[in-house]
Amino acid sequence: MSASGLENFKESAPLSLGVELELQLVSRRDFDLTRGATDLLGSLDYDGRFGEIKLEITESMIEISTQAQLTVDGIAGDLAGLRDTLRQHGERNNIGICGGGTHPFHHWPERRICPGERFNGLYQRYGYLAKQFTVFGQHIHVGCTSADEAIWLTQALGVHVPAFIALSAASPFVDGVDSLYQSARLNAVSAFPLSGQCPPLDDWPDFCRHFEFLQACGIAQGIKDLYWDVRPKPEFGTVEIRVCDTPLAIEQAVSLAAFAQSLARWLLRTRPPLHTERQAHVARYNKFQACRYGLEAEISDPVGLCRQPLRQSLASLLEAISGDARELGCLHWLNPLKNMLAEGAGDAAWLRGRFRQHGNLNDVVREASERLMR
Rank of each mutant, 00 (worst) to 15 (best):
M340F: 01
T66S: 13
I241E: 00
V19T: 15
R307Y: 05
V254C: 01
V159E: 06
V189W: 11
K54F: 12
L167Y: 13
L214F: 12
L180E: 14
Q197E: 09
K338Q: 04
L25N: 01
E296L: 11
F355K: 01
A216H: 13
R292H: 07
L194Q: 15
M373G: 00
G346E: 02
C291K: 05
A37Y: 10
D148R: 05
Q279R: 15
E277M: 04
G323P: 06
V72F: 05
H160Y: 14
V364E: 14
H107E: 11
L267D: 00
T246M: 01
W333G: 02
S322P: 03
P104S: 06
W333H: 14
R284T: 12
P205N: 13
S65D: 02
A257V: 11
D175R: 15
M340T: 14
P199W: 08
P104W: 10
A163I: 07
R118I: 09
L201H: 11
E117F: 09
E343V: 06
I299N: 01
A13Y: 12
G359C: 10
R35M: 13
Q155W: 12
L314F: 08
Y293P: 12
C114P: 07
L337F: 06
S65L: 05
G77Q: 09
L70R: 13
C330Y: 02
C306L: 11
C198K: 10
A349D: 00
R352P: 11
Q279D: 02
T134L: 01
S179V: 09
P302K: 04
A76D: 09
H281P: 03
N93A: 06
S16H: 03
R112A: 06
A170N: 14
R326E: 07
D175N: 15
F136I: 07
S179C: 12
E22N: 04
R185F: 09
L268A: 04
A290N: 10
W108D: 10
T134S: 09
N187G: 13
T34K: 15
L70H: 07
R209A: 10
Q155A: 09
F207P: 15
L79S: 00
G51K: 13
T102V: 13
G304I: 13
